[in-house]
């Protein structure tokens, strides 16, 4: 364990330095992305004004606000560029440089990205959660924030990140087969966005469809952590969904190992 840690610390450092260099750029990127939340907020605001009841499919307006911003926070936290990075390395051949080193191919990506995230997430989680909870307290008129839920939420996000990372590694190996990863990546993000509840809460879908989506790995990415934060899942239900997350994380971990073995045989790097 100590040895593993020693090997991969440089990758974490590299990831952190990478982020620190482009921090201004990152701030603009986040500001641009958060605008989408405000668009959703105004749409839902108008929807609740136009609807008849106080709640809609189990959501009140303050809950919906929490949902919109937490979905954004969760997607940013668990976001992974692995598919893209793997695809690019396959295409330009720099994958060869990683292959000659006595480290695990997937793990180098994982630790580099973790370094990235350690920095960015501290700057995102604290202000966003604090701001959101202040707004919610003002609107609702009482404190609904729960530290326990926040902590379980963060653990659930770690699991969600692992699922997403290994899923993306698997997807990145597609670059061995198809050349155009950019468009395929966009399609993937779109489908995952919908299936994970990022576009609309899964409870708004027809019941059977919603139930099927809950079993798929994508609900574990985004919907499950957010529901945990909001305190919807309690007791055995909570354990069930965390268990499901663990299952999917292991599943994609195994699949990525398998695909690695299969695809590295097909790899041919030109030149040097």
């Amino acid at each position: 364990m100590k040895r593993i840690f020693k090997i991969y610390t440089p990758f974490i450092n590299a990831g952190m330095q990478e982020t620190a260099t482009y921090r201004v750029n990152w701030v603009f990127y986040i500001l641009g992305s958060v605008l989408g939340c405000f668009v959703s907020y105004f749409i839902w605001h108008a929807v609740f004004l136009s609807g008849s009841g106080e709640t809609m499919n189990g959501f009140s307006l303050p809950q919906m606000i929490v949902y919109i911003f937490l979905i954004f926070l969760t997607s940013t936290m668990i976001g992974s560029d692995a598919a893209w990075a793997v695809g690019e390395e396959v295409r330009d051949g720099s994958i060869a440089m990683r292959l000659i080193k006595p480290v695990s191919y997937n793990a180098t990506f994982l630790f580099q990205e973790l370094g990235n995230k350690l920095l960015t997430e501290m700057f995102l989680v604290v202000p966003l959660i604090a701001g959101l909870e202040i707004v919610r307290t003002v609107i609702v008129g009482r404190v609904e924030f729960s530290v326990v839920n926040l902590l379980i939420y963060l653990c659930s996000c770690v699991l969600a990140y692992l699922i997403n990372f290994f899923f993306n590694i698997c997807f990145g190996f597609l670059a061995f087969v198809i050349k155009y990863l950019w468009g395929a990546n966009m399609m993937k993000n779109c489908i995952v966005g919908f299936l994970s509840g990022a576009i609309i809460p899964l409870s708004f879908l027809p019941e059977t469809l919603g139930r099927i989506f809950m079993l798929l790995p994508f609900a574990s990415l985004n919907y499950t952590p957010v529901m945990i934060y909001m305190g919807v899942y309690q007791g055995t239900e909570l354990l069930y969904y965390i268990g499901l997350q663990v299952f999917w994380a292991l599943f994609f971990f195994g699949l990525s190992k398998l695909l690695w073995v299969v695809s590295v045989r097909r790899l041919s790097v030109q030149g040097g």
Partner: peptide, 30 residues
């Protein structure tokens, strides 16, 4: 590549439309 890219953009728009359609199932008008 180009076909995949076009379909990708089409799909992004479709998911937004689906969102609108589901919303309008819950309200008479916006």
């Amino acid at each position: 590549d180009f076909i995949v890219g076009v379909i990708g953009f089409l799909m992004v728009q479709c998911s937004n439309l689906l969102f609108l359609w589901i919303i309008f199932n819950n309200i008479p008008n916006l």
